[in-house]
Design a binder for these strands. Structure first.
Lengths: 148, 148
DNA sequence: ATGCCTGCAAAATATTTGCATGTAA
DNA sequence: TTACATGCAAATATTTTGCAGGCAT
């Protein structure tokens, strides 16, 4: 599966219409706030964000949007399959604009999530799901810290 | 590495002295509350608990302990290496009495963590840690839900 | 015009902390 | 006795929700 938003900018030069179309396809009205957040998220390469960080970035960019709307928008994007939730830190929720199958580094000193750059990870010996269950996702989080 | 608390009960018949010794070794005074919580955690087999659940269980067992003390005690045990924190759900922190290397199922419908019963999981193609970093832990979480 | 969105503030939830009291050594 | 532990309540942090007003269709 390929990320829906990939290469918005390079494929069209202007990205507004693309974002609008994608939001519509997801059943979400292309409002000013959603377009602005989507642009920040997908305007250049893939990203990992927390709600707080995205809200701060919006403020810096002069985009007026409430923190509650950022939370709600991130959840809507996630429900629409445009973002993937990454659970690495119990205190904070991260969203990844890369919705394809891949895994993560978590940099413990900085509370930061980074994609693992290769696709070579293979997990062997994975057991069957418990009876009556099916596997929805396999998450691999490699926690790292500086050598200090 | 073997869990410090394993087989307390079977190796001695009474477990009080063991728990006391382990707490002391960890630099923690063996108080009534800590002994009671340690007994609940290690008295029989390995477990996964949240602070809230452990507090509820204590109340049921007639052990008087405040929720704050449960939180603090779990953190102390974790810092002492007696528990491992498992991050699977952003809304809740789980602690695993099994501190050895192993991985987890997360049952999404029930918000419950279960050890993956085999040791056969091998992860291949794991990349190097980013420059200047070292890997502290690799977590594999297999999310499952009922077939519905 | 209609119904979905947004902002704000308040609620809900999870966890930590300050401080007076209690207890182990 | 002395330092560390506990309980309580309040503080903190994150995320969600209710509601009145706003905007997309």
């Amino acid at each position: 599966m390929t990320a829906l938003f990939s290469n918005q900018r390079s494929s069209h030069g202007s990205r507004g219409p693309c974002l609008t179309a994608v939001l519509r396809m997801a059943g979400l009205r292309p409002t000013r706030q959603r377009l602005a957040l989507a642009d920040m998220l997908y305007g250049g390469g893939h990203r990992h964000v927390s709600a707080e960080a995205l809200h701060a970035e919006a403020s810096t960019d002069g985009v007026t949007v409430s923190l509650a709307t950022v939370y709600n928008t991130l959840r809507q994007f996630k429900d629409a399959g445009l973002l993937r939730e990454v659970t690495v830190d119990a205190a904070r929720t991260y969203f990844d604009t890369n919705t394809s199958d891949h895994h993560h580094f978590f940099i413990e000193d900085e509370d930061r999530v980074v994609d693992i750059p290769t696709n070579d990870i293979v997990i062997e010996g994975l057991p069957e799901a418990p009876k009556g269950m099916k596997i929805t996702h396999v998450d691999v989080v490699v926690r790292v810290k500086s050598l200090s």
